[in-house]
């Protein structure tokens, strides 16, 4: 039997986050814990939500609006969170990307093309980052690099440019059925590659 020492600090924050988000109250039962949970979630995930929104929208002010909307939505929808479906970090990124996609898809086609052309490619060298960030980027990029080029292309167009499958088919000039197959195969491979590397 292993004795566990769980005290204040990061784990308590993450735990209060889970309790607060999953069951709509703090581990101590008071609203301060919910605030701490929201702050912990923000500190852990806002940088990633911002990165995804900025990549999709290409506009910093609009991306910051998405970050704000995302965390307000997480706060309001705390009771809807199902911890058996996704981790808090996954949930935050999912909600943020969904809000960014809503904004992107409300734009005209011309504006979307302009955004996509202005955006940096995923493989571009970023500004110097801490080693942990570089490791994470390397892990995901390595998983993407295992895909055949045509499968990697559909994932990048779908995830980082926010295109739906019919738009990807039109962009690449490939039949819709081919695009659907590529997306399915690519996601299956990524699930194996990303899961296996963790």
């Amino acid at each position: 039997m292993r004795e566990s020492m769980v005290s204040a600090g990061m784990f308590a924050l993450v735990w209060s986050l889970l309790v607060a988000v999953a069951w709509g109250r703090g581990s101590g039962g008071d609203p301060i814990d919910r605030g701490q949970a929201l702050r912990a979630l923000y500190d852990l995930c806002s940088g990633r939500v911002m990165a995804v929104a900025l990549k999709l929208l290409g506009d910093r002010a609009e991306a910051e609006d998405v970050v704000q909307e995302t965390f307000l939505e997480l706060w309001r929808r705390a009771a809807d969170y199902d911890p058996s479906r996704a981790s808090p970090a996954t949930w935050a990124v999912m909600v943020g990307r969904s809000r960014a996609l809503d904004r992107l898809r409300a734009r005209s086609s011309a504006a979307r093309v302009a955004t996509a052309q202005a955006a940096e490619p995923v493989s571009a060298d970023p500004a110097p980052q801490p080693v942990e960030v570089r490791e994470e980027q390397e892990r995901v990029r390595s998983a993407l690099s295992t895909l055949p080029p045509e499968q990697r292309e559909v994932i990048e167009l779908a995830y980082f440019e926010g295109l739906v499958q019919t738009e990807i088919a039109a962009r690449t000039g490939q039949p819709l059925g081919t695009i659907k197959t590529r997306v399915r195969l690519a996601m299956e491979k990524l699930e194996t590659a990303l899961g296996g590397a963790l």
Binding site: S46, G47, R48, A63, M94, V140, L144, F160, L190, L194
Partner: peptide, 17 residues
């Protein structure tokens, strides 16, 4: 699938709002 999709965000460098 959602976890896999969310993990793709890791390809991007976090950006501080």
């Amino acid at each position: 699938a959602r976890n896999t999709a969310a993990a793709l965000a890791g390809a991007l460098a976090p950006v501080a709002p």
